[in-house]
Measured scan of single mutants.
Amino acid sequence: MTEYKLVVVGAGGVGKSALTIQLIQNHFVDEYDPTIEDSYRKQVVIDGETCLLDILDTAGQEEYSAMRDQYMRTGEGFLCVFAINNTKSFEDIHHYREQIKRVKDSEDVPMVLVGNKCDLPSRTVDTKQAQDLARSYGIPFIETSAKTRQGVDDAFYTLVREIRKHKEKMSKDGKKKKKKSKTKCVIM
């Protein structure tokens, strides 16, 4: 069974824990209790493949930012979460993405942009803004509501699919490099 290491990042209060708990335990946590770091595991079937999701729910508070490099190193894919009623959390996505790329030393890291709290009427981040940002990053965008469960499975499952595509691409690139290195030079 394939294991996928997913990391949920975003500013404090955007609903990272609520999304994760909704996926794992099928219930909505409405009281806000700032996370330092929590880890969850769940076995699911995605596109006919049974897999184990190892999900790291991270601290959004700035005082825990020193811990970010460590979990970013171990993560295979990242859910970059903002709240649709919090423009600052949307603007912060850029910083999370840049930090992930720096730590992973790669421009090509599996990510999904997630606009959470889409059940709320007080939207300050337009869907088109988020779609445009995701398009500019070359990553999928999904709106979710941890409260109603809308888009929750889709967000995590899409990230797994992005990781699969990335692994497939990397193995193809690896095979191309191996083929090239088999060419021999004969000096007579």
Rank of each mutant, 00 (worst) to 15 (best):
R149V: 07
T158K: 05
M170C: 13
D126G: 08
K177G: 13
Y157V: 14
M188W: 06
K165W: 01
K178W: 05
V152N: 13
R149A: 11
Q131V: 07
L159F: 01
K128V: 11
T158C: 09
K165F: 02
M170A: 08
R135L: 11
K177V: 12
D153S: 12
V125D: 14
S181L: 01
Q131W: 04
S145E: 10
Q129C: 04
D132P: 01
K169R: 12
K177R: 12
G138W: 00
R135G: 08
G138C: 01
V125A: 04
D153I: 14
Y137D: 12
D126L: 05
G174S: 14
D153P: 08
A134G: 05
V160C: 03
V186Y: 01
L159C: 02
K165E: 05
D132I: 04
K172F: 10
Q131G: 12
F156E: 00
K175P: 06
K178D: 11
Y157D: 10
M170W: 12
G138I: 00
I142R: 02
K178I: 07
K128Y: 07
R135Q: 12
D153M: 13
E162A: 05
V186F: 07
F156D: 00
T127L: 10
D126P: 03
K172Q: 11
Q129P: 05
K169S: 12
D153H: 10
T158Y: 08
A155E: 00
K176G: 15
Y157L: 08
D153L: 13
L159R: 00
S181C: 08
K172A: 10
I139S: 03
R164H: 10
F156Y: 07
H166L: 07
K169M: 11
T127V: 12
A155Q: 01
A155R: 00
K169L: 07
M188T: 13
L133H: 05
V152H: 06
M170V: 07
K178L: 07
Q129N: 13
G151E: 11
K175C: 12
H166Y: 09
Y137H: 11
V160L: 07
S136H: 10
V160A: 03
V186M: 11
H166R: 10
K165L: 04
D154G: 06
F156A: 01
Y157P: 07
Q150V: 02
A146G: 09
Y137R: 04
R164L: 12
S136K: 13
A134Y: 09
V152G: 06
V125C: 14
V160D: 00
T144Y: 00
V186S: 15
D153N: 12
F156Q: 00
L133C: 08
S145L: 01
K165Y: 03
K177A: 09
V160K: 06
L133R: 06
E143A: 02
K178G: 13
A155F: 01
S136M: 10
D132Q: 09
R135A: 08
D126E: 09
K178P: 10
E162Y: 01
Q129V: 15
K178N: 13
K180A: 12
S181V: 07
K177L: 15
L159A: 02
K167R: 14
